[in-house]
Amino acid sequence: MSGAVSGMSGAVPGKSAAIEVRAVEKRFGNVGIIRDLNLSVAKGERHAVIGPNGAGKSTTFNLISGHIKPTSGEVKLNGDVISGLRPFEINRRGLSRSFQVTNVFARMSVWENVRCAVLWATGHRYAFWKNVDSLPEVRERTAQILDDIHLTHRRDVPAGLLTYAEQRELEIGITIASGATVVMLDEPTAGMSHAETDRAVSLIRRLTEGKTLVIVEHDMSVVFGLADRISVLVYGHIIASGTPEEIRRDPKVKEAYLGEEAH
């Protein structure tokens, strides 16, 4: 279990938002992909962003995590403005994200993948005077995360040779390895079977205990099962934000999104 962060659990949702997106706009040339985006995620909340294909969910992730810079507007992390900062600067402030397309270090072993993600947070940074194999806290933390994502038995396998589902789990492992308090997962269960999805969801639930989670997901059973709050993104604009119950009842959401996809 993620005992290391147990002190963080029970964060009160309220005044201090973990993520605050204010009037963010993103244009590529003349095309406005994101318009007047407002989003607030409270500390300790599990927040799902849903919306039809092409609504700008991944772009929203990229804007918050610093992968791309907003044309206008601002993004705050724990009250500090982070829009305009570079991804690693944002990551060092405690926000970590995963990718929709598996994005691991393919030629390195599973162990090395996770360990690289642990190094900055444990303060070893660019050190070239320390033996990476004899850093006890790095070793313990890496072993703990491998255990958490059930990949201990695959520790010496190059990440590129893992099965798809294993790579997705490793992706989550790399994302949480730094101990970030805000975790953003971009479609973590995409392409998974039912059994694999169930496994991944319980994994996510367990590993983000006490953290703020923002998740983009297509699988509605995952969204409604996991999220405390849901935001619905349509054409680069949030049309509704609320509890799963509120979202389920919202007529605008029914019309714009759930209506089309309801089975």
Partner: peptide
């Protein structure tokens, strides 16, 4: 292996 991903684990 992946300079893009490195940025998201804290490294420049």
């Amino acid at each position: 292996d992946n300079p893009e991903r490195v940025q998201f684990i804290g490294y420049d």
